Amino acid sequence: MADRKMKTRRIERRYHFSVIHLSVIHPSVSFLVMLCVGVLLCPLNAQQAADDPPQEPSPEQVAALAEGKAMYRGLCSGCHGGSGRGGKGPNLTDDRWLHGDKDEDITRVIQKGVPKTTMKKLGESLKEEQIAKIIAYVRLLGRAPTDNNWHPYLAGDAKLGQQLFFDEKAKSQCSKCHTVNKQGGRVGPALDRIAVRRSPEYIMESILQSSKFIDPQYEAVQVVTDEGKVLKGLRVNESNFSIQFREEDGRFHSFLKRDLDEFQVLKTSLMPDNFAEQLTVKQLHDLFAFLLSLE
């Protein structure tokens, strides 16, 4: 037991999860001016550099980007990270865009949201010119040098990780709850293209600390029936009068709340929090490598 706890602490120390925001490293205005001059207004070639040296951005340009940054930090950074390089939302600075990479595609996603994700529609809250300023700031982030040096400390084998994921006798039993290519259980979220939808750091964090962030769509509930039976599962639907949920084994239940002795939404995930104890370090990184291969 002591050895397992020591191994868990070693893994968690190696993976110290933190968010470094751009504003910590660069003062807001000077950073925007630096990027405007050094990136947005940079010459296309050496001859142009000699003939047309870059000009300082206008106050209007700086003000528009500052407004875009403020809106991004308030509305977007919680999921996509302060530097736009992803978290529980996709990386916005690479070339892997799930719903299109043109300005009109991004505008549509911001306005209409993405069903069954944490990307809510903001079209009723933001004007088109405000969305344009957010997109301009996102484009700026994509050209900025990265400040995220996070990477796993051990290379994994994706093929072995795939075997581990679908092995019903393994300690992890991932496919009991999660699906990949329509194979697996339905209790947890499908993990198709997870490497595009989540950052590597967030994926590892979700494996080791599964209860740190729980998507409201995958909250677990626990009930105690009038017969004293305790049941726990993934909430499927809830109203003021009834609750429906599915246990880990797939069994579906529906109750009127008035017929229950107790009902509560759990603050912990159905996914175990002890994978650092259950898996070897090599198995953990094999599983991680498999998830990163799902693009």
Rank of each mutant, 00 (worst) to 15 (best):
M6N: 05
R14I: 13
S18I: 13
V19A: 08
I25M: 02
M34S: 10
N45P: 12
Q48K: 07
Q48P: 01
Q61P: 01
Q61Y: 04
A64G: 06
E67I: 04
A70K: 14
C76L: 08
C79S: 10
H80T: 09
H80I: 12
N91M: 04
L92Y: 11
D101F: 06
T107M: 08
V109N: 03
G113Q: 01
V114W: 01
P115W: 08
M119K: 10
M119V: 14
L122N: 15
K127N: 07
E129S: 08
Y137P: 01
R143W: 05
A144V: 00
N149F: 09
P152F: 10
Y153F: 06
A155F: 10
A155S: 12
G156Q: 13
F165I: 12
F165A: 03
F166I: 02
N181I: 01
G184H: 13
G184T: 14
R186S: 15
V187P: 11
G188W: 10
P189A: 12
L191S: 11
L191R: 05
D192I: 12
D192K: 14
R193F: 09
A195F: 11
R197Y: 14
R197F: 01
S199I: 13
S199K: 03
I203Q: 05
M204H: 03
E205I: 00
S206H: 13
I207Y: 00
I207A: 03
L208G: 11
P216A: 14
V221E: 00
K229D: 09
K229H: 09
V230F: 07
V230M: 12
V230K: 09
K232I: 11
R235W: 03
E238F: 01
Q244Y: 04
D249I: 13
D249H: 14
G250D: 10
K257D: 07
R258Y: 07
D261R: 15
D261H: 09
Q264S: 10
L270G: 04
V281P: 03
Q283K: 05
F288K: 02
L294P: 00
